[in-house]
Computed example of a mutant assay.
Amino acid sequence: MEAVMRITDTLKSFREARLSALRGPQEFFDHHRLSRPADMSQATQRISYNTRYFSGNYGIIVAILAVYAFLTNPLLLIAMGFLVGGFAAINRFAPDPVQFGDRTITQKHLYIALFVIGIPLLWIASPLSTLFWIVGASGILIIGHASLMEPGIESEYATVQDSV
């Protein structure tokens, strides 16, 4: 019960911290503010400001790309479902040792069997390439958007507040 409360508190704090930083689609996709930065210094300043300003939106982009990556890799879904479902099933249905003839099967034996089947299945599903695809795709989208989007008027006030 305490673990459920911690998860609930964590989700509430995540929602308050990240989702409160969401900007509306009209502001995030404002094509009037798109322009090519004059030089690398201006691009760096824009990236620095926009990654903080649009952090909630960029988090949603990463989440959408992650969901897309998992849905387009069915073997990874099967491997993760097998491992997570196996852990849940072992913990729920086999907490005590079970006797089969002269053999006693413990949770340790079940976990070993789960790993012997699940780890090679997970390796074949190539989770690292999926992770690198998510990082690369989100990095290109986020850095591209952040460098092309001109900061709004509020960015001038942010520098005044920082210096006070």
Rank of each mutant, 00 (worst) to 15 (best):
I142M: 00
Q42R: 06
A38F: 11
L83C: 12
Q26T: 11
F70C: 12
P127S: 03
L121I: 11
H31L: 15
N91T: 09
Q107E: 06
F132I: 06
D39G: 05
H32S: 10
A17R: 14
H31A: 15
I61K: 04
N57P: 02
I143G: 00
G85C: 08
A43G: 08
W123C: 10
A17T: 15
V62H: 03
G56W: 05
F14I: 12
A137N: 08
S41C: 09
L19V: 15
P37G: 01
N91W: 11
R23N: 12
A89D: 10
P74Q: 07
A66Y: 08
G86W: 03
V116Y: 08
R18I: 15
H32P: 02
R15V: 08
S129D: 12
W133A: 03
Y53D: 01
A69D: 08
L141H: 04
L76F: 03
A89V: 10
P127G: 02
D96T: 14
I134Y: 00
L77H: 04
G85I: 05
L71I: 07
G59C: 05
V116R: 09
F115E: 06
F93G: 09
E27P: 11
N91E: 14
G139R: 02
F14D: 11
L75M: 09
V84F: 13
S41R: 15
L11T: 09
G139P: 07
F100V: 15
P120W: 08
Y49Q: 04
L121T: 11
A21C: 09
E27A: 15
F28A: 05
L122Y: 08
I134W: 01
N50M: 06
I78M: 02
L114F: 00
G59V: 03
P25M: 07
L128T: 10
S138F: 01
S129Y: 11
G86M: 03
